[in-house]
Design a protein around this nucleic acid. Structure first.
Lengths: 190, 190
DNA sequence: AACGATACGGAGATACTCTCCGTTTATCAA
DNA sequence: TTGATAAACGGAGAGTATCTCCGTATCGTT
């Protein structure tokens, strides 16, 4: 028995789409200013919509966070393109990791954005694309013989997300230095 | 002009001390169950005191967190003693770092406990003692020639606190593996 | 036991999250 | 253009947390 295709989703109305965009913009601004626990009422006010509207579009805070992160990830992925062809694959990986840290820590409370998604979430979501892009950069460095072959991207990203978190701890952190130390641990020993 | 010594602090009344102890115990339990953002009203109820009493003893949530962590640090420091005399100083450092991670991540939201205190906070507070103990273990491994001499304890502890944070992210994390990778980055290259 | 100082409990103010219902707006067909 | 319908709206108010403050209780000293 073949499952019939579900009917095409009714498109969002123009006013709803407009409000959705406003909310994502307002949330980006509020998260940058006050971190991921910024008041949702404040975000609704910034967007010029009622609280009910915010919750209708984003039933929980995490949905709003996801929307903001999707935008961010889509933009940061463009920075990976040239690195995928760099002459020094290990250095390209290091540059990429430093880039990720410098972007994510601007959003206090969103360090978990770098934690790899579950395998079941494969698809073309920006989070997954960022994960697989990082994986490509690691694989390339491994194939060049510079990075240990026993390292998997998941653990690298865990370490890196920890660094982004440390950067938001309120203490002064030399993120580049921490990434260097991590990279040193990934390099093949002569 | 010499500043006169301040008069000795009046000792806390018996009932106040009793309530303080109750609050710290209740907070420990609540933080273990629900993380560092457990409801303060719930903690007051658990301790059998009114909300006003909780705030009198602990004006902000961080004060309560500090009290809980002081207790914890005092107990975990006893585990460092034998490590300070271990035959393999690098392995002793690794064991110590793994111990710290396994202890801290039980308190969701308290990963920042491992971030080194500011220099101006030198003293015999447990936080500072933990910091200087870690420094001793690092110095010992450096003197043995196993660990790079350019590494400072602050950056190590930043990395480790990031790992403890990752452990509380809700995703499965092999903390020992991450510590191994970090240690590998600290080791002298042949 | 009396007195003064310390410490108390918890009602209520405040600020947030979240729901829900009457109203408004957008879209489509005639 | 008009009218009908469904989508989407705003925001009052319920619920829950943090935090303050004042009348009352308790402790410690004489």
């Amino acid at each position: 028995m073949t499952v019939p295709p579900s009917p095409p989703a009714r498109p969002m109305r123009a006013d709803a789409r407009r409000n959705y965009e406003r909310l994502v913009s307002a949330a980006t601004e509020a998260f940058l200013e006050n971190g991921a626990d910024a008041s949702l009422d404040d975000i609704a006010k910034r967007a010029g919509v009622g609280p009910g509207t915010l919750y209708r579009h984003f039933p929980a805070r995490q949905n709003l966070i996801d929307a903001v992160l999707d935008r961010w990830m889509a933009s940061v992925l463009t920075e990976a393109e040239p690195l995928l062809e760099a002459a020094d694959p290990a250095e390209a990986l290091a540059v990429w990791l430093r880039r990720l840290v410098s972007h994510v820590y601007r959003f206090r409370g969103l360090s978990s954005a770098l934690i790899p998604p579950e395998d079941k979430m494969k698809g073309d979501s920006p989070g997954w694309v960022l994960h697989s892009t990082s994986e490509q950069l690691l694989a390339r460095a491994q194939q060049s013989g510079q990075i240990r072959s026993d390292v998997v991207i998941k653990e690298v990203m865990m370490l890196v997300s920890g660094v982004t978190w440390a950067c938001t701890s309120g203490k002064e952190v030399d993120a580049d230095r921490l990434i260097d130390l991590i990279m040193n641990g990934l390099r093949v020993r002569d």
